[in-house]
Design a protein around this nucleic acid. Structure first.
Lengths: 205, 205
DNA sequence: GTTAGCATGTAAGGAGTTACATGATTTT
DNA sequence: AAAATCATGTAACTCCTTACATGCTAAC
């Protein structure tokens, strides 16, 4: 039952940073903007929202979300609860964003972290990308080693599976290399950034 | 706490089908032969083994595993418990192997299923591969649709993430196409199978 | 008039992990 | 004498899912 969420919590805070939303809409965004990877259910989303409110990171407001068509009568759809990020919530999210620990480059976390690179400072982006890369390179080394040891004993299907697995990992490493190269070259892919931005630290302040 | 395992249960039965083993060794195999995908911990493995014994699918034997060097004194290492698949266990695993339900083409399950294709009959292999493919194609369609709708609102990082995600999925679809083609052409990658095998159904009996 | 979508929630459960406890044996 | 590897196990916890309950509106 949803105490202290982790990845879901992070994603919710990040989405609400962009604009206030009600739960139902949040879930949809979770499955498009981010949720290429993960589809969260209401059973985890709503309890998560509750605990975030309890910790003072969100406020609940009854009502009218941003793009509510004015013609729509106030009566009608079930009353929606719009969640808005508080100042503390924003601060907390910013702190989460600045973290570069090992869990950051875990498979599922990495995708969500990357999805919020638009709000992440350049040096943190670099550390996350490089961490992810070295994690994958370790994995690759282990795979190669174990393949060398057991190659003869394996049937063609297992072999094919491992080959395909390794190729996928290699591909992701190449992708990361390009991204890291691009970051190093000073290109900034965030909205409204000019490539010639001299400072490396300017996360929304 | 590890009641009815799911994927771990399946993998354990499958590995023990090949030869009896003790827990520690099983875990290593789980992380090489299969575990390219998943690393299981002892905290889930041992409880799982216990419940499989309780259901009569495994027996516990004290002692000497296959390649025990005869010189090693019986005293010494902590007494190992060797697990062996029973007849019922074998039967149960065969039934699991023959299943082709939707969970079969879930991300994690698919990898493990594929790893045991060497013990799977051709028509089941086909259904699993085709199921996986159509699942990925659905995913691709959803991704394309949502991308078309939201393209303008997304920053470059999110866009890049989605692009890379889609490319990965497309790549896997191509891989599956080749495998399916290869299966259709009658090639059988299992150990000791001749390409000209006329029957489509001969899973270990 | 029934299906589909909108909207919020709860209780129970699944499938694992982490951290811990224990102890012998080989390698450095 | 310390560290690594072998070996088995338990308790607590995490993080999320499924199934259910509820009820309204729009479209078919």
């Amino acid at each position: 039952m949803g105490r202290r969420s982790g990845i879901l919590e992070f994603a919710v805070l990040g989405l609400l940073r962009e604009s206030p939303m009600h739960g139902y809409e949040l879930r949809k965004r979770l499955n498009t903007s981010l949720g290429v990877f993960r589809a969260f259910s209401y059973g985890s989303l709503y309890p998560c929202l509750k605990t975030l409110v309890q910790r003072g990171w969100l406020t609940e407001e009854p009502g009218t979300p941003p793009e509510d068509s004015p013609s729509a009568p106030l009566a009608g759809r079930r009353a929606r609860i719009v969640y808005r990020l508080t100042a503390e919530g924003k601060e907390h999210f910013e702190e989460l964003l600045s973290q570069t620990g090992p869990d950051t480059w875990e498979d599922e976390h990495f995708g969500v972290r990357f999805a919020f690179f638009g709000q992440t400072s350049r040096d943190v982006r670099m550390r996350v990308l490089e961490g992810r890369r070295s994690r994958l390179e370790e994995r690759l080394a282990r795979m190669r080693a174990s393949l060398a040891r057991t190659r003869e004993r394996l049937d063609d299907y297992t072999l094919e599976l491992q080959r395909h697995g390794m190729e996928s990992v290699e591909r992701e490493v190449r992708w990361l290399n390009e991204l890291i190269e691009s970051e190093r070259a000073g290109r900034d892919r965030r909205r409204g950034e000019t490539p010639s931005d001299p400072s490396g630290e300017d996360t929304a302040k």
